[in-house]
Computed example of a mutant assay.
Amino acid sequence: MNKISIKKINYLDTFPVRSAVLRQGKPIETCSFLGDDAVDTTHFGLYIENNIIGIASVFKTNNKNFDIKNQFQLRGMAILEEYQSAGFGKLLLEEIFNIIESNQVELLWFNARETAVSFYEKLGCIKKGASFEIPEIGTHFLMYKYFNM
């Protein structure tokens, strides 16, 4: 049986998966997010054996749509295409939820691609407001999940 693990990684380690899944056909520079190297940003890698197959990043960023002080943003959640729809995204996100809850975070928010909304809803996340466009990326929805409330 293949060994599956989730561990904290350097932001540069997210680039191959970000590029393959979230920034297909775009320059590698588009894989860099503002705040990637901030001390309160954490990047996670999902591995099978020693191969990274999924990533997600959590940033200390407040969204003005929420009146909560202790909130973080999920960004760059991605599972390599050949591993999608096999439960790996759920595994990664549930681990992040556990870490967030144990760190007394009250809210995790994110901009979900339209195609991923039902995935997040199945994990207890809620859609807020109407859809919006992120240029060159596509239709998104603001989504969130409360913790420790």
Rank of each mutant, 00 (worst) to 15 (best):
M1G: 05
N2C: 11
N2E: 13
I4P: 01
I4R: 08
S5P: 01
I6G: 12
K7D: 07
K7L: 06
I9E: 01
N10Y: 02
Y11I: 03
Y11R: 09
L12A: 03
T14I: 04
T14E: 02
F15V: 01
R18H: 05
S19P: 00
S19E: 08
S19I: 00
A20C: 05
L22V: 11
L22Y: 01
L22R: 09
R23H: 13
Q24W: 00
Q24M: 07
G25C: 09
K26Q: 15
K26V: 00
K26L: 14
I28C: 09
I28V: 12
I28M: 14
E29D: 10
S32V: 15
S32G: 00
F33E: 13
L34H: 13
D36T: 03
D36M: 05
A38F: 11
D40Y: 08
T41F: 03
T41H: 03
G45W: 10
G45N: 06
L46T: 07
I48F: 03
E49V: 06
N50F: 00
I53N: 12
A56L: 12
A56E: 07
A56R: 06
K64I: 11
F66C: 12
I68F: 08
I68C: 09
F72D: 11
F72R: 15
Q73Y: 01
Q73F: 00
R75E: 03
A78V: 02
A78C: 04
I79M: 07
L80I: 14
E81R: 09
E82V: 06
Y83R: 05
Y83V: 08
Q84D: 04
S85I: 12
A86S: 15
F88V: 05
G89F: 01
L91N: 15
L92Y: 02
E94H: 11
E94P: 02
E95C: 05
I96V: 08
I96S: 03
F97Q: 08
I99L: 08
E101H: 12
E101T: 09
L108G: 15
L108N: 13
W109P: 02
F110V: 04
R113I: 12
R113S: 10
R113W: 11
E114M: 07
V117I: 13
S118N: 14
Y120A: 03
L123W: 10
C125Q: 09
K127R: 15
K127C: 00
K128D: 04
K128T: 09
G129R: 09
G129C: 06
F132K: 06
F132G: 04
E133Y: 13
P135S: 13
E136F: 10
G138L: 13
G138V: 14
T139P: 06
H140S: 07
H140V: 04
F141Y: 13
M143N: 08
M143G: 08
M143F: 03
K145S: 14
F147N: 11
